[in-house]
């Protein structure tokens, strides 16, 4: 039940952020689907026994792959979809809890949540980078192939 709510919420949330970021037309729906699928990957890898940062990493790889494919098909920059699709992975609750515990002078929990926030942010960035480097290498191989 909780998972179902999360999937629906990540769909609606990605649509909301795609409106904030100024996407238009069918891009909005595609961003929503991407957001839900990305969270689905996160849930799946979590279910298969990955730790949270690892699950987030795989989800980020999937999200960037999805955005890159769409960007290629629709001939738009990759950034257009990327952030709306990945938004559900952003550790909003950890950041909030870190703030909250810091105010309550609960150092341990504040630190734990702050570290979790950074770890997840790093996992997302690494996921994006892996896709970026892969597509760069792919493009280079392709252009070399054309020259020969």
């Amino acid at each position: 039940m909780k998972e179902l709510i999360q999937l629906i919420a990540s769909f609606v949330g990605a649509i909301g952020f795609s409106l904030i970021f100024g996407l238009h037309g069918k891009q909005i729906l595609l961003a929503g689907i991407g957001g839900a699928c990305t969270w689905g990957v996160c849930l799946l890898t979590d279910f298969l026994g990955c730790s949270l940062p690892l699950a987030i990493f795989f989800a980020a790889v999937f999200g960037s792959f999805y955005s890159e494919c769409l960007a290629k098909i629709l001939r738009v920059p990759k950034t257009v979809f990327l952030f709306s699709v990945l938004i559900s992975l952003i550790p909003g609750s950890n950041l909030y809890l870190a703030m909250r515990y810091a105010i309550e002078v609960n150092r341990e929990l504040a630190m734990a949540n702050a570290i979790e926030t950074l770890t997840v942010a790093l996992a997302i960035s690494l996921g994006i980078i892996v896709m970026l480097v892969t597509s760069q290498i792919q493009a280079r191989i392709k252009s070399r192939g054309n020259r020969n």
Binding site: I5, Q6, A9, S10, V12, G13, F17, G22, I87
Partner: peptide, 15 residues
């Protein structure tokens, strides 16, 4: 942007 903010806030509260 307003509609987007309302949707996003509601969705992530549920999330």
């Amino acid at each position: 942007v307003l509609i987007g903010s309302l949707l996003a806030a509601t969705a992530y509260t549920a999330f």
